[in-house]
């Protein structure tokens, strides 16, 4: 069964009197444990699409199911709950909380979103710190680590709740090439380890090659789908 089912989803934005169609009747399905990338130039609709899949926004028209849930009819609180249980986010600017240490940043969703008991939290956070290679830096604050390290922490934070899906909007945009590759490799490794679906958007052609399924977006339309092999391809 598909993890994400999108049927003719459309997104319009109103700017004064003008309505701009950001997404034009997109339909696709994504299977569990996929490693998917949406590529396209700036303004092609990548971020808008990821926001819809991530339940941060709602399509103007069409049907969208994520983890077998019709996300169109979730209210504000239900959306937050759904995101907390099913979706992990990795941001371009890392978006770690500056007042929390590396350990506390990863622990945050378990503590503040899912209320997981302390012993279980410690087990899961420590396992992820080791998996992303940040155990030595666990007591450091975000301003004391590098960009690549921050993104590793962000990946650990996205995975700590065992989500079905991790969305990463331009996760390597603020990283150098070497670090970017390391981050993508880490995401792949995590996908293999936790069987989590990773969807990321990028316009970096070198990183694009790492995706196992590649969707191309142009002016809000899906113009291509390439399957490049790998595990869990639908």
């Amino acid at each position: 069964m598909s993890l994400i089912v999108a049927e003719n989803i459309q997104k319009d934005y109103k700017t004064g009197e003008v309505t701009v169609r950001a997404l034009k009747a997109l339909s696709f399905e994504i299977e569990p444990a996929s490693f998917v990338s949406f590529v396209g130039p700036s303004g092609s609709g990548k971020t808008t699409l990821l926001n819809l899949i991530g339940c941060l926004d709602k399509p103007t028209d069409g049907k969208l199911k994520v983890a077998d849930t019709d996300v169109l009819h979730l209210d504000r609180k239900q959306s937050a709950s759904f995101r907390g249980s099913n979706i992990g986010f990795i941001f371009q600017d890392f978006n770690l909380l500056p007042v929390l240490t590396v350990y506390e940043n990863i622990e945050y969703p378990l503590l503040m979103v899912q209320s997981v008991p302390a012993s279980e939290r410690e087990k899961r956070v420590t396992a992820l710190l080791e998996a992303v290679g940040m155990i030595e830096q666990k007591d450091k604050y975000p301003d004391q680590i590098s960009g690549g390290q921050k993104q590793r922490v962000a990946i650990a934070r996205a995975l700590v709740t065992n989500p079905k899906l991790v969305l990463a909007d331009e996760p390597t945009a603020n990283l150098d090439h070497k670090t970017a590759y390391m981050v993508i490799e880490l995401m792949k490794k995590m996908r293999d380890e936790f069987r989590t679906t990773f969807i990321f958007s990028t316009h970096d052609q070198k990183i694009v090659g790492e995706a196992e399924i590649l969707y191309t977006l142009e002016d809000g339309e899906l113009t291509g789908r390439q399957v490049r092999g790998g595990k869990g391809n639908g």
Binding site: K77, R83, M112
Partner: peptide, 16 residues
């Protein structure tokens, strides 16, 4: 604001 957006995105309920 961005921090609020981050914690809201990762599922923190409005009440919290």
């Amino acid at each position: 604001i961005r921090e609020i957006g981050t914690i809201a995105a990762i599922g923190t309920l409005p009440g919290k």
